[in-house]
Design a protein around this nucleic acid. Sequence first.
DNA 1: GCGTCAAAATCAGGGTCTTCCATGGAGCGA
DNA 2: TCGCTCCATGGAAGACCCTGATTTTGACGC
Lengths: 172, 172
Amino acid sequence: MIASTQTNHPLAKSAADTSLLELACAKLKGAGLRITQPRIAILTAMLERGQPTSIEQLHGVLEAGSCDLVTVYRCLAAFEEIGLVRRSFYHNGTSLYELSLNDTQHYHVVCKATNRVDQLDAETSAELRQTVEKIEAKLRERGYENVSHVVEFFGVAPAAARSPAPLQAVQR
Amino acid sequence: MIASTQTNHPLAKSAADTSLLELACAKLKGAGLRITQPRIAILTAMLERGQPTSIEQLHGVLEAGSCDLVTVYRCLAAFEEIGLVRRSFYHNGTSLYELSLNDTQHYHVVCKATNRVDQLDAETSAELRQTVEKIEAKLRERGYENVSHVVEFFGVAPAAARSPAPLQAVQR
DNA sequence: GCGTCAAAATCAGGGTCTTCCATGGAGCGA
DNA sequence: TCGCTCCATGGAAGACCCTGATTTTGACGC
């Protein structure tokens, strides 16, 4: 269950993260939502993680920073509502959340054994995205509104990548 | 709680369904599983439904036919294990199950408002399948085993398609 | 038919998520 | 800067979904 292995980055939040945080706050404001301490904490945690994260994991990371579990649920629901985060799934159906600040969507492979999340390579992602967007366009033609999608790959990761639990091996 | 809204198909099981049921039973046997009344009831219900169905809905349909909810859970888990059913998701993350007897996988659009499930047209499905299979092949090259995927589209269906038989919006 | 053992029923429990209500604090106007 | 107004949060309780453990039933081989 991915214990509290999260590496506490000793380095301060990078400048890039900070600007992304501001972007996220702007989105919040734009949607008429308030900018509060817990929300900033959640967004910061997601930025630092940089990969799909379960609510449980998020709350674990935030424990030091004081934020109720219920609040995490509510915030993520709100964020999803306004399109600030995207939801994906583990193999067993648990929800994962990921920031969607830059509009390029990433696609993932989730290890069925360890729940480690890896990304598809850029070229493959691009091709997939193209196909998916074409389909979404067709759906809109058929009259569907507010179209979205979930694409997720699962598999048992090769032992080499699985064993050392490097976590964070993959980031944007 | 999904009232007894399920349409009791007045028509008897079609011949096609019967032969598919036999095929499913053969798969069960092949996997070393026994053929039991509840399992047949579940399979029959899924065949009649012919589209992704939640466990709750399945149990609702089966109520007349006497099958415990726990049994439905376990049977579907067993079926998924041997590849007899495929799992997909609602927009809210609830699991849906669908028989996968013929090896051509269907892709769906789920209405965010009513949870009605619709299929993509054949051509689009085929194109998508091709892309996805290519990606899965790449993943296997990278060392992933037991590769699978979930692809799901969501949207608010056009009113025309939405109004008839709104099939109980599932709330959590 | 009979025995064996997997599968189903039943009961109970854990964990996840939601709801409720009182309180706090962000944002806004004066 | 101050105070007001709601939205957001915290905390606890509880609903719901799913899973184990154990007993009972019944499918299958002989």
